[in-house]
Design a protein around this nucleic acid. Sequence first.
DNA 1: GATGAATGAGTCTTCATTCAT
DNA 2: CATGAATGAAGACTCATTCAT
Lengths: 198, 198, 198, 198
Amino acid sequence: MDAGAPRKLTNRGKERRRQLIDHAARLFAANGYHPTSVADIVGSLGVGKGVFYWYFDSKEQLFLEILRESQTDLRRAQRDAIAGEDDPVRRLELGVKAAFRWWAEHPEITNLVQFAATEAGFAKALRRGQEVALGDAASHIKDAIAAGEVRDEDPDVLAHAVLAVTTHFARELVQGRGDDPDATAALAIAIVLDGLRG
Amino acid sequence: MDAGAPRKLTNRGKERRRQLIDHAARLFAANGYHPTSVADIVGSLGVGKGVFYWYFDSKEQLFLEILRESQTDLRRAQRDAIAGEDDPVRRLELGVKAAFRWWAEHPEITNLVQFAATEAGFAKALRRGQEVALGDAASHIKDAIAAGEVRDEDPDVLAHAVLAVTTHFARELVQGRGDDPDATAALAIAIVLDGLRG
Amino acid sequence: MDAGAPRKLTNRGKERRRQLIDHAARLFAANGYHPTSVADIVGSLGVGKGVFYWYFDSKEQLFLEILRESQTDLRRAQRDAIAGEDDPVRRLELGVKAAFRWWAEHPEITNLVQFAATEAGFAKALRRGQEVALGDAASHIKDAIAAGEVRDEDPDVLAHAVLAVTTHFARELVQGRGDDPDATAALAIAIVLDGLRG
Amino acid sequence: MDAGAPRKLTNRGKERRRQLIDHAARLFAANGYHPTSVADIVGSLGVGKGVFYWYFDSKEQLFLEILRESQTDLRRAQRDAIAGEDDPVRRLELGVKAAFRWWAEHPEITNLVQFAATEAGFAKALRRGQEVALGDAASHIKDAIAAGEVRDEDPDVLAHAVLAVTTHFARELVQGRGDDPDATAALAIAIVLDGLRG
DNA sequence: GATGAATGAGTCTTCATTCAT
DNA sequence: CATGAATGAAGACTCATTCAT
């Protein structure tokens, strides 16, 4: 995919790269991907344009990188939160709670993901990660159905319901209204679980 | 906001205008707002660039118009569907069903709305309509709470849950997977109501 | 020059034409020739674009027409004012006074002339009329030199001095500051004549 | 007005900027401001369009810059010419002579100034500089009146007469007919002073 | 590693002009 | 005579990307 090796970076280089990613994500989230120019990114960071193209092949590639990174990072957080828990409903709960916490710490991302879904090229890249998340949830739900704890419907559809409420609440309530992540997570889970139980 | 009178249009003019709106909405939905140029819009319609600016002040204004129009149109559809029904839970159900049907008939819109939410200027315009929809749902929910049919939580938050599942299902299942609108609506309602009931 | 006959106009037609000329002149003077679009002209007059092109071949031709008309009109006014006076200095005086009065009645024109001089195409059209005005003044001056009433310098150069002060005062003092045309004319003449007398 | 700092330029950059200013001034003077496109400017200089916008915010801003620069530059030249001279009439003379010389060296400018006066936006920018020049002349005239060397009239009006003859002669005689700047200056001064003396 | 400068295709928009009705 | 609609060339300006230093 990336032609050749991904360039060896010194420590200073790695910091710069990180700084660029974080800063760009913030700007993309605040003003939109298209309205944010490369000049904006480097300008507000006080560096020259060359810097940008030293670390990234293109603006598009940087955006994809942000997407990919956040997906894997969130998933790692969920995995850690779930580890050691066997009950499927509990696993679902812990996963949702972890997601809320992660989003509260990375407020830019919801906007980026929301945008990415609207443009063909980025949507494709999103899909993969999204399907993983969906699969994770669906797998717990299937177990819960088997255990008789959730109504017997297509697990994929039920998983979609979980994602819907989770992402929507994170975006609108936690981020939009500033509600507490943990409390909102608890509420989302309560609503969703009752919904799933039928 | 609209400078002066919105230009007197002949019948031919009104048709052209509609054609432009519909066509542009389709292109915006398929390729994104920014990647779709005014030249794309008029070009694929086989008319000159001037036509566009005869009917709209700018690309941005057209987009806002699409947004506004779809919000009022959807709401009218919901109002019609609910008219004559008194039971709050039934009203909620009918409203959701109407929304699913409307979205199935206007597949472009979900994408446009999703995008609009990610760019400050458009988000503001969205908000108003969104709040109306939320208020509608919340009002039914409040009645339902009073009637003891729904758990006693902040009606606004519960309304958010309804919207979340509704829009997400419309987008991912009906549009994405081609599921049947009415069946999906029924499922969404079942899940959500059980969730709300607690 | 104008291809074919200049179109026979009904009385109503002649009024329309005049209305267009006057209105356009005002707009050109207020906002500049280029910034004033044909749409501005007809729009603020409440008529369609077709009207404009019914009476004029082009925007440029209209502008040239305004220029030509004002030059001949001003000259006619000066001729009338001078008629019957034989003394060259008096003739000069009367001509200047008439010009001030005419300009006070046609405040747009100074701006149009000033602009016309800055764009090659229009400058050429101006020149002819300007040279006539210069010739008129020079001719009086030559007579005055012969009569020993004005210093013996190139009459053309002296005529330029007359025009300079006259047009500048008309523009800056009468129009810019609202000074009285006749008083300003008298002052201009006093200054200029003393200057010419040496 | 100038958003932020006016961009740090290297030596090469400063040269480019100057080259653009000078070239644009020439083109504006020759063909008019509006008829001269940014593409014309950069095209005849053999550089890309982006270069223009690297150095200037807009075509308009460049024009204003040319205006401002020429006004301060001319004024500096006059100040230098006058320095050390105390007699007010002599100061007036030297100032006029310096102006003629400066204009002979910057033939474009008279046309630009003449045009700028005809368009509201630019006229405002002109005014300030124009008033300074007027004030300079008026101040010398006031001194001359006090010394009994000039007729006792509104110094501002007299100053206008000086400017009128000076700019008109510079434009029509020196530039238009190619007359010698110093000789024309001498003549203008002679005429004007006699006019002022009364 | 980093900078300022440069490129040029592409974007939105305007507007003189034409034309069907 | 007059209107609203349409045309399309041209204009100002942007911006991802490249490059010399």
